[in-house]
Each structure stands twice: as structure tokens, then as C-alpha cells.
Amino acid sequence: MSDAAPPASSGDWPLFEVFVRSKQGLDHKHVGSLHASDPAHAIALARDVYTRRQEGVSIWVVPAHAITASAVEQKADNFDPMASKIYRHPTFYDIPEEIGHM
């Protein structure tokens, strides 16, 4: 399916993931998903569903099938090596008290 290509009429509309910027200066954050016939429709529905109480100033919609996720089986390979690299954190280093804040 191309981006948000409409499905056969028997099925449901394609799935979109919805991201909302809650206010200027902040990131868009994933808030949920919805079905819509195309991206413009998804924006209209997302406005009604996810911003009924001024939760946002901007919306992104992304066809769910367009998202590539890291593999769950690779979770350990991907992320565990960082556990031993605590020297990447400032707290790894002892700074003499006399120095104060650094």
C-alpha cells in the first residue's frame, strides 16, 4: 500500500499514528492512533479526538505502516552495551569539593 492508500471498502480505513505538540517550544509527542481515509482526514479526526481540551497547537499524522521499529529480538544487542558505559555520565567523575559546581 502506498502512503495511506485507501483500503478496499469492506475493511476499515488505514491506521495513522498521531503526534501532538502541546505548546510552542516542545516536541511533538505520540498520543495515540486512529483510522482515517487519508492524511487530511486523519488530521481532522485527530483534532476532534486528541485536542478537545486545548492539548495541542500542532498535529502530525503518520501512516502506521510507514514506521520502522527496532526489532524486539535485538533489544539486548542494541541497548545493553550502554549499561557498562557509565563514564558517559557526568556522575562518573568525582570533582573535588573545593571546585564546587561544574
Binding site: P7, S9, H41
Partner: peptide, 8 residues
Amino acid sequence: REAAVTHA
């Protein structure tokens, strides 16, 4: 629902 798909 059908009209929305046709429109899309």
C-alpha cells in the same frame, strides 16, 4: 465511510 474513501 464510502464517500470518504472515494474522496481520498
